[in-house]
Design a protein around this nucleic acid. Structure first.
Length: 109
DNA sequence: CTGGTGACGTGTA
DNA sequence: CTACACGCCACCA
């Protein structure tokens, strides 16, 4: 079982864990930071394995600030509740003031 | 090996 | 502004 792809997954987990409290980032931002800017999908796919880890996947959303992955969390509003719990306003699965809570690893890191 | 799918992003009309 | 198409790459049947 080698860890070729696992390496990529692990990188995503690291960045996700580095996301500060009350902040969110996008798959593309992480992908770009890892050098796979054209593989934002892989970042989301990597998040599949984040389930059960210390990875705050609820802080990772798409470019529009939409909670696209909330269905994979538990299938309910858990993701939104977690974000609101951190002071992030979420309406209809969409993050408000995204520019304020946005965190870019390539810039902040 | 082939085909389809997906927690996405960007470009074009 | 919205809608559609393409790319990108790992995983599953």
């Amino acid at each position: 079982m080698k860890q070729e792809t696992l390496n990529f997954f692990d990188k995503v987990y690291e960045v996700a864990k580095l996301i500060p409290y009350g902040r969110v980032t996008s798959y593309g931002a992480i992908a770009k930071y890892l050098g796979a800017a054209r593989s934002a999908r892989m970042v989301g796919y990597a998040m599949n394995g984040s389930h059960g880890k210390d990875v705050p996947a609820h802080r990772v959303v798409n470019r529009k600030g939409l909670l696209t992955g909330k269905h994979h969390f538990d299938g309910t509003n858990l993701m939104q509740q977690l974000l609101e719990s951190e002071g992030i306003t979420v309406v209809e699965n969409q993050i408000q003031n995204l520019e304020t809570v946005y965190w870019d690893p390539s810039k902040e890191l």
